[in-house]
Simulated assay, not measured.
Amino acid sequence: MRALIQRVKEASVTIDRRIYSEIGQGLLILLGIEAEDTQEDINWLAGKIARLRIFSDENDAMNLSVQDIDGDCMVVSQFTLHASTKKGNRPSFIHAAKPEIAIPLYEKLLLQIENETNKKVKTGCFGAMMDVALINDGPVTIWIDSKKRE
């Protein structure tokens, strides 16, 4: 699993000109799933997201997690995070999981983040054409790959 995590002041997903979901201060997580992802990837990534200390404390140091600030999480599926640009100029998405594999893994990750944060996770709509809006706080943007675990 690959996650592009953005610390946000607010974020929203709009589908067909209607707001589908929105959050205040917290994390917008763009998520790419590949067929080889497992429950182990889900557990590791959800724990990392919940405990990632990227919010400022009273000394303006990044020492607080989304849990510490009682922030929100929004997860938006984004198969393009598994794009390969190795050959040519048109990206290949061969490594992105097909919906029948990706959707159950996506739903399991949502539940695991909710378990880790004790808070409902907002979402996009899997497979829909979405307009994602955000105010990036910082900006702070973190790339995490559950296979590399760096």
Rank of each mutant, 00 (worst) to 15 (best):
I103D: 07
T141E: 06
D131H: 12
I69S: 10
S146F: 00
L28D: 06
D72I: 08
A128S: 14
D41S: 02
T38V: 03
Q67I: 15
G32W: 00
E34F: 07
Q6H: 09
P139Q: 04
M129A: 15
S77N: 02
G26A: 08
I5T: 01
N59S: 15
A83D: 10
P139E: 06
R51A: 15
K120N: 09
L27T: 09
A133T: 15
E10S: 14
H95F: 11
Y106T: 08
F79Q: 05
R51T: 14
E58K: 15
E22S: 14
E114D: 14
V121D: 03
Y106G: 01
R90V: 11
I135T: 12
N59F: 12
W44E: 00
T117G: 06
I5A: 01
E22F: 11
I23P: 05
K122D: 11
G71V: 11
D57M: 02
K148T: 11
L27S: 04
Q39T: 13
G47D: 08
A11M: 08
V140M: 07
P139W: 00
G88L: 04
A96F: 02
M62C: 12
G24P: 09
K120D: 11
K87A: 15
Q6T: 15
D57F: 04
L134T: 08
Q6I: 10
V132K: 02
W143A: 12
A50S: 09
V121I: 08
I103R: 03
K108Q: 10
L52H: 09
V140S: 04
L105G: 00
A96G: 00
A83F: 00
A3H: 05
K9N: 10
R7E: 00
D145F: 04
Q6W: 10
H82L: 08
I101Y: 01
D68F: 12
F55K: 07
R7K: 07
P104T: 02
A133E: 14
